[in-house]
């Protein structure tokens, strides 16, 4: 069954794309297999306008106030925040590790840049993730084509501009195929 796509309300400011918020939380002690990952990830809701975005976002906990092993994902409507999704499987992500205390501000700046189409890379952006971990937090932005160096360079330069990060911040690009290999390498039978 195909879900009805959301539309902007009367007088609202439409976004270039519709987006969906997702939330996931790792159950301690469980292996992170694809199946359990998909079971742990919950849709919060979709929006089509600036005003609808604020209605969701204003009621959400700020990433810096989350505890445990949790993630917020914001992806274009129709793209699952998983490597296996058709839009992601040839793609990759820029990863920025943040010391504790920076996640809420960086996440907000990142998603506002994405919703406002600040990256200027056509259809390439898939979504963004903030991952709250024990000692540090991680934000990432996913794009469709990992091999397109012009696109990945442009995303990196836009990230530097919109996040206003300390100059020594390390940014790392990781293809999803590498992420899959790495995670398989940690399984006992691989």
């Amino acid at each position: 069954t195909k879900k009805k796509m959301v539309v902007p309300g009367a007088g609202e400011h439409p976004l270039q794309y519709n987006y969906t918020f997702w939330y996931s939380r790792r159950t301690p002690g469980r292996p992170a297999s694809t199946q359990s990952y998909e079971q742990n990830i919950k849709q919060i809701g979709s929006f089509a306008s600036v005003e609808q975005f604020w209605r969701f976002y204003s009621h959400m906990i700020r990433p810096g106030d989350l505890t445990g092993h949790s993630d917020f994902h914001l992806f274009k409507e129709g793209i699952k925040p998983m490597w296996e999704d058709d839009a992601n499987k040839m793609g990759g992500k820029w990863i920025i590790r943040l010391r504790k205390g920076l996640a809420s501000r960086c996440w907000e700046n990142l998603i506002l840049a994405m919703l406002g189409e600040q990256f200027m890379v056509g259809e390439e952006i898939c979504g963004a993730v903030v991952s709250v971990r024990f000692q540090e937090d991680i934000i990432s932005i996913w794009n469709k084509t990992a091999s397109d160096q012009g696109t990945t360079a442009r995303i990196r330069d836009t990230l530097r501009r919109v996040l206003n990060l300390p100059p020594n911040t390390i940014m790392e690009y990781k293809t999803h195929t590498d992420s899959i290999k790495y995670s398989l390498g940690r399984l006992p039978w691989a």
């Binding site: 600036v50 604020w54 840049a113 919703l115 406002g116």
Partner: peptide, 21 residues
Amino acid sequence: GTRIIYDRKFLLDRRNSPIAQ
């Protein structure tokens, strides 16, 4: 077609607009 581009300030200004409440 044209892309819908918004800067950070424009988006933040919509945060408290009556229509968003």
